[in-house]
Design a binder for these strands. Structure first.
Lengths: 343, 343
DNA sequence: TACATTTGTTTAAACGTTTAAGCAAATATA
DNA sequence: TATATTTGCTTAAACGTTTAAACAAATGTA
C-alpha cells in the first residue's frame, strides 16, 4: 500500500487557493501576502510536504545536482576532494552525486551516462587510468553543461583543470634525494598515457639530467601503482646488478608495497635505499618507517573545482576553454628518506 | 548559448510519427514494427538522443535511483560495501547516489532530505555516530520507500538490517586473548548509544565473566574511535597502577592510535601488551606489528543490502518490519596478539 | 472623480516523458 | 464473405512543478 505523497495541490486544496499561489508562497514571491505565505508554510509542515525535485527540475531546467566522478572513493585524496566540493556546493543549494569509475573506462562511460540522464547541472571529474578515448567526455561538453577536471585531466578536452604541478614535484623530490646523498634514483611510475604520471616521469628524467645523474632505462618503470604493482616493481629493482640507492614512487600505495618488499629483504630504509611516495595518504605517516610523500592539497583542489563550476552557473557562460589552475605541491619529508634524523 | 537537447519529439518529427510511437520504439514495445524501431534507433543515435530522466521518472513514478548514506567513504569497509551495492543494483538498472554524513546528525538529515527530494526509490544507510533522534529516518518510512540499514542500525526503526554479530565477536576476541595467556584485558570502545558498540561492550563484559577475569571499570572506555581517541585512551591505560596485558579496541583507527602510543613508550607488542582491532582495514596488515582484527564481510553486507532492496521492488511490498541478517565475523589473527609466532 | 499603479491572486501552458484508450488497416478465423 | 483478432500507430491525459499572462480589487495620483 503505497503512501500518497503530499503535493502542492494538496496544500492548495486545504487553503482553497491555486497551486500556483502555493508554489509562489513557498518561493517567497513578493506578490504573495504574508498571511498566505504563513498559511502555506503551516499546512506544508502539517502535511509533511516535500517538494518533488523531478517536477521542479523538469520544469525549470535546473536540477541543482552536480555529478562527481572519481576513480575510487577509498583514498584519502579523493574523499577529501569530494568532501570539500560538497561543502562549497551545499552552501549554494547544490547537492552532489558521487560515482566511482573503479579505474575502468567502461564504468566511467556508464557513470557519465547516468549523470547526464539524471540531468545534472555540471560534472566534476578525475579520469580513470584506463581512459584514452575522450568521446564520453566530449558528450558532456556537447550537452552544454560545465565540465571541470581535477588531478587526472586532459588538455585536449579544452576545459577547466585543477591540479598540482607534477613536473615540478618530481624536481623537488629528486633534489631532496640528491641532498640526502642519493646517486642512483629509480622511479616506479604510473602509466605515461595518464598526463599526471607522464609529467612526473618527465620531471624525474629532466631532474636527473639537471643533477648529472645516470638515466638508466632499467630504473624507470610504468604500472598501475597498486600495492601489488609496487611490490613487483621493487622486486625487479632489487634484482638488478647495481641496485638503486633511492626509489621515487609515483603513488603512495605502490610506495607501501615497495616498502613491504624492502622490509622483507631486510634492507634498511633509508640507510641502504631511500623511499619517497606521492599523495600523502594517511598511512604514509602510520607505517615504520614513515614514508616521505607529496601533499596534493586535496581540500584546496576540491574547493577550487566547486568554485569553478559555480563561476559558470553564475555567469551563465557556457563557452569553456582550457584553463588550468596549478597548485604547488608540498614535499613532506619523513623517515623513509631522511638519513640525518632517522634512527 | 545553451545547446538544445534532443527530445523524443525531435525524433518523432524527423520520422513523421508520434512521440508516443518513439517512446514505445525505444522501449521495444511489441506493438511497434521492427522497421519503425530501427528507424527510431538510427535517428536517436544520429541526434545523440539522451532520455530525460526527470521526465520519465516523474511520469512513471520510478527514478531508478537508490540513495546510499554512509558516515564517510574513506574507510575501506564503507567503500567496499558501496562498491558491492552498486554492482548488484547496476545489473538491475539502478544507479546509486552516495552521500556522506561525516558522522554528523545535521548532515545526515540534510542528506536524507536531498535523497527524498531527488525521489530515490529506496535508501540504504549506515547511521552516523551522533544520531539518536530517528525522526529523519521515520520520514523515509512514512514516504513508503524501502529503507535498509547496515552496520550501524537501530532496532526501533523496524526495518531490515544487515550486519555482523558484534556481541559474539567480542567473545571470540576475548577467547583468543585468553588462549594467548592474557589476564587483564582492556576495552577501548565506541559510544554505547550506537548499538554495535554497545553490543561489543556487552560481549566484552560477558566474556570476561565467562572466563572469570577481572571486570575493572578503569579498563573500559568509550569514545569516537578516531586515531586520536585511540592515542588518548591508550595513554590513560598506561598510566594505571596495574596496566592491562591486552587491549581490545572496537575500531581499527583507534587501534592504530593505540599502537603508536605503545611504540612511543617502547612497549613490546604483543609480548607486554597484546592488541586487537576491529574492521580489518587494509592498514592493519601494513603496520608493524600487523594488527589482529575482525573481518566484517563488507562485500557480503553490500550485496545483501542491495538484494534486500530489490526484494521490496520486485514484490511491490511496502510493509517493512525488523528483519535482521547477521553475518558471523571472522577474526584475523596477526602479530599484534599472537605471542607464539611473533618475533 | 477618473485614471494609473500596486497587490494578490488565478488561469493555462509548459517541461519531456509514459500510458491508457482508441482506431484504422491488415490478417486470421469461421 | 462476414466477423474477430492482431498489428501499428495516434490522441490525449497525466506526473508535480514553474511561470508568463491575465485580471480583479485595493490603493495611489492628478
Amino acid at each position: 500500500m503505497k503512501k500518497k505523497k503530499t503535493t502542492i495541490k494538496d496544500i492548495a486544496n486545504v487553503l482553497n487557493i491555486s497551486a500556483a499561489a502555493v508554489s509562489k508562497a513557498l518561493h517567497n514571491d513578493s506578490r504573495i501576502s504574508e498571511k498566505t505565505k504563513e498559511n502555506v508554510r503551516q499546512v506544508a509542515k502539517k502535511l509533511q510536504y516535500q517538494p518533488n525535485h523531478l517536477a521542479s527540475a523538469l520544469r525549470s531546467g535546473k536540477s541543482n545536482l552536480v555529478g562527481v566522478i572519481v576513480p575510487r572513493t577509498n583514498s584519502n585524496f579523493f574523499s577529501s576532494v569530494i568532501q570539500n566540493i560538497e561543502e562549497v556546493l551545499n552552501k549554494k543549494g547544490y547537492s552532489i552525486i558521487i560515482t566511482q569509475s573503479n579505474e575502468s573506462y567502461d564504468k566511467e562511460c556508464k557513470s557519465i551516462d547516468t549523470l547526464l540522464y539524471t540531468q545534472v547541472d555540471g560534472i566534476i571529474a578525475s579520469m580513470a587510468n584506463e581512459t584514452i578515448d575522450l568521446s564520453s567526455y566530449e558528450k558532456i561538453k556537447s550537452k552544454g553543461i560545465p565540465l571541470i577536471l581535477f588531478d587526472r585531466g586532459e588538455n585536449d578536452l579544452n576545459v577547466d583543470y585543477i591540479g598540482i604541478d607534477d613536473y615540478n614535484s618530481s624536481h623537488v623530490i629528486v633534489e631532496h634525494l640528491v641532498k640526502n646523498g642519493c646517486q642512483r634514483i629509480a622511479h616506479i611510475g604510473g602509466y605515461k598515457r595518464t598526463r599526471i604520471y607522464n609529467n612526473r616521469i618527465r620531471g624525474y628524467v629532466d631532474a636527473l639530467k639537471k643533477y648529472k645523474l645516470p638515466l638508466d632505462a632499467e630504473l624507470l618503470t610504468e604500472g598501475d601503482l597498486t600495492i601489488e604493482d609496487g611490490r613487483i616493481k621493487m622486486r625487479q629493482l632489487l634484482s638488478l646488478k647495481t641496485r638503486p640507492d633511492a626509489v621515487y614512487v609515483a603513488g603512495d600505495y605502490a610506495a607501501l608495497g615497495a616498502l613491504q618488499v624492502l622490509k622483507e629483504h631486510k634492507i634498511l630504509v633509508p640507510e641502504e635505499i631511500s623511499l619517497v611516495g606521492f599523495g600523502n595518504e594517511p598511512f604514509t605517516d602510520m607505517v615504520t618507517p614513515k614514508i616521505t610523500s607529496v601533499n596534493q592539497h586535496s581540500a584546496e583542489i576540491g574547493k577550487q573545482a566547486a568554485n569553478t563550476f559555480l563561476k559558470y552557473i553564475e555567469n551563465d557562460t557556457i563557452e569553456q576553454r582550457l584553463n588550468k589552475i596549478i597548485l604547488t605541491a608540498e614535499l613532506i619529508v619523513r623517515d623513509s628518506s631522511n638519513k640525518k634524523t632517522s634512527l
